[in-house]
């Protein structure tokens, strides 16, 4: 079943056209890797899917049952950031005006903390967590409302190789339980390893298909 269908999408900032006639879809259970050079419009695509920018033309259809969780590319969490990992994750508890957390909400938070392997450090300040721990906390916060589609915007970019695989193994674990994933990356290795389908974005056009049809990169990737 297709949960996101994008047809003939064109998006521009003012007169600067960034996405030009894009077509692709995401099916339930997919691990779609979106791969393309800097500035080709990957983040812009995500922002259009989430409805933050209007498209010039084309259609985006999202299954109304599917909630989207999004881990953005940049986050401003510095060393002095005061909240603990648990409290940071809990910020995304909503749909109630109660100032305090209900028991069911606390249970859900614990569940997500366990699932993302943060139980041992949940009460430490997020500002002092390592890059990998931070990414897991961002992931946990996005997963808290139990989304059907998770969008990761270069969440592995700042991690060392081992941490990259650790984070994505975790994501795959959720994928096996029915989560669909849209993963934006520059890393061909990760794309091949985890992806089930791909969307290749270049200045000249777009290509989409099952992961075994992903073309090799033209030039060496660092």
């Amino acid at each position: 079943m297709s949960i996101v269908t994008v047809s003939n999408l064109t998006v521009a900032y003012g007169s600067h056209r960034v996405i030009n006639n894009l077509n692709f879809n995401i099916n339930q259970g997919d691990f779609l890797v979106v791969i393309g050079e800097n500035g080709v419009g990957k983040t812009t695509l995500v922002r259009s899917l989430l409805g933050f920018i209007k498209s010039q033309s084309g259609d985006i259809t999202i299954d109304p049952q599917t909630k989207i969780g999004y881990v953005p590319q940049f986050r401003n969490i510095d060393q002095e950031y005061p909240l603990s990992i648990r409290d940071f994750i809990a910020l995304n508890v909503r749909h109630s005006y109660l100032p305090w957390l209900k028991k069911s909400e606390r249970q859900r938070i614990d569940q997500v903390i366990d699932a993302t392997n943060l139980q041992d450090i949940a009460d430490r300040p997020l500002g002092l967590a390592s890059g990998g721990e931070k990414q897991r906390a961002y992931l946990a916060q996005a997963l808290l409302p139990a989304p059907g589609l998770l969008i990761l915007d270069e969440s592995t970019a700042s991690l060392d190789n081992e941490m990259k695989y650790e984070l994505l193994d975790l994501v795959t674990h959720f994928q096996q339980q029915g989560l669909s994933v849209m993963f934006i990356t520059h890393d061909w290795g990760l794309a091949q390893h985890y992806g089930t389908r791909f969307l290749r974005m270049t200045e000249d056009g777009y290509l989409t298909g099952p992961i075994n049809e992903l073309p090799q990169p033209e030039k060496e990737v660092k």
Partner: peptide, 19 residues
């Protein structure tokens, strides 16, 4: 009355906006 939203936008402006 606005505690949860105020907390989210104050302590994680980016996260709040994307959700």
């Amino acid at each position: 009355a606005v505690y949860r939203q105020l907390k989210f936008t104050s302590f994680d402006a980016i996260g709040a906006r994307v959700s």
